[in-house]
């Protein structure tokens, strides 16, 4: 378990202070694949760097599962002296958007690096590195240099390197953002596979919702350095509770610029029902014509989810009729939208 308690981070800049994170509280369960999403500049990268203290939080605590003091109390990572912090970091691996491999070392030597740092014997490290090359599916690249590899291959080597120290946690900072969709999918499969087989807790930082849908079980949404929404991916994605969440999950859904009608409702399909002809039934059964302002359905972990923005007729009785019809449907939630700006 990773617990972030009241994490704030302030950067001093030329024109005053910049508050990158404000009072972030987050608990990441052991063995989870946890997504942290947000727009560029929301503070995602800063937040993930606070987990291994590449960025030291201005205030707050970072508690890592299994890191206890003599009396069995959880230890705040921020309170550790440098040598112990380095020791703790060996249990928290990280992979990056730009891979950050050592360009002057072969792939095998790159994977050996964390073991070299930890004082593992060379023979043992090489043996383990070859196993890891096997794990990431590049057994023939041992003697290649990173410059000879494609982006996806580089990230596989980086993952092998990250696993070399037998970590409990794997932090992925936009790990697939520099890769094409097919390669992204393959790398995500690999990460998921590692999570399932080794039980490593994975934290995924991304601005791509597709990545979260693909592998995450839980998700947290950051906006302007604040945590605005968190929960199971199904819950958050099927029915985001905040404006920030909706913008991220359905970036296209609220961009229709016609018709600011009298009443706008959001209809959320909570699995299974998104392909039923709801709007057609509404028109036939109640004789009410509604306007579809925007719609987005997604396939999350094998279940269908989606939302639809409906513009109700101006006539009050017709609108009420439509509302009650919609509310009567199972697997559908309806809520009125007051902040719809077209």
């Amino acid at each position: 378990m990773i617990e972030l308690k009241h994490i704030s981070k302030v950067f001093p800049t030329a024109d005053g202070e910049f508050q990158a994170l404000t009072d972030v509280d987050l608990t990441i369960p052991t063995g989870d694949i946890f997504g942290i999403v947000g727009m560029s500049g929301a503070g995602k990268s800063t937040l993930v760097r606070c987990i291994n203290l590449l960025e030291r939080p201005t205030s707050g605590q970072v508690l890592i599962d299994g890191l206890l003091d003599e009396s069995g109390q959880a230890v705040d990572l921020c309170a550790l002296p440098p040598a112990q912090l380095r020791q703790a970091r060996r249990g928290i691996s990280m992979i990056f958007q730009q891979f950050n491999l050592l360009m002057q070392r072969t792939c095998l030597d790159n994977i050996c690096f964390p073991m070299e740092i930890a004082g593992v014997s060379k023979a043992k490290a090489r043996e383990r590195a070859r196993e890891l090359l096997e794990t990431v599916g590049l057994p023939d690249k041992a003697d290649a240099y990173p410059a000879q590899l494609s982006g996806g291959q580089k990230q596989r080597i980086a993952i092998a390197r990250a696993l070399a120290s037998d970590p409990k946690i794997l932090l992925c900072d936009e790990a697939t953002s520099a890769l094409d969709p097919t390669t992204t999918r393959a790398i995500l499969r690999l990460i998921q596979d590692i999570n399932r087989r080794l039980g490593i807790t994975v934290v995924v930082i991304t601005h791509e919702m597709a990545v979260v849908e693909e592998i995450c079980t839980h998700v947290a949404i950051l906006e302007h350095g604040r945590l605005v929404e968190t929960g199971a991916v199904e819950t958050v994605f099927s029915n985001p509770q905040t404006e920030a969440g909706r913008r991220l999950v359905y970036p296209e859904g609220v961009q229709i610029d016609r018709l600011p009608p009298a009443g706008v409702v959001r209809v959320a399909f909570n699995g299974g029902s998104s392909y039923e002809p709801l709007i057609a039934s509404l028109a036939i059964d109640c004789g009410v014509k509604v306007n579809i302002l925007g719609a987005d359905t997604r396939n999350v972990n094998g279940q269908a989810f989606g939302t639809m923005l409906l513009g109700l007729p101006e006539d009050q009785t017709e609108a009420a009729k439509a509302m009650s019809y919609l509310k009567a449907q199972k697997d559908v939630t309806v809520e009125e939208v007051h902040d719809y700006h077209g």
Partner: peptide
């Protein structure tokens, strides 16, 4: 940064 994250 990667090296720091590894505990160098």
């Amino acid at each position: 940064e990667a090296a720091q994250a590894m505990g160098c």
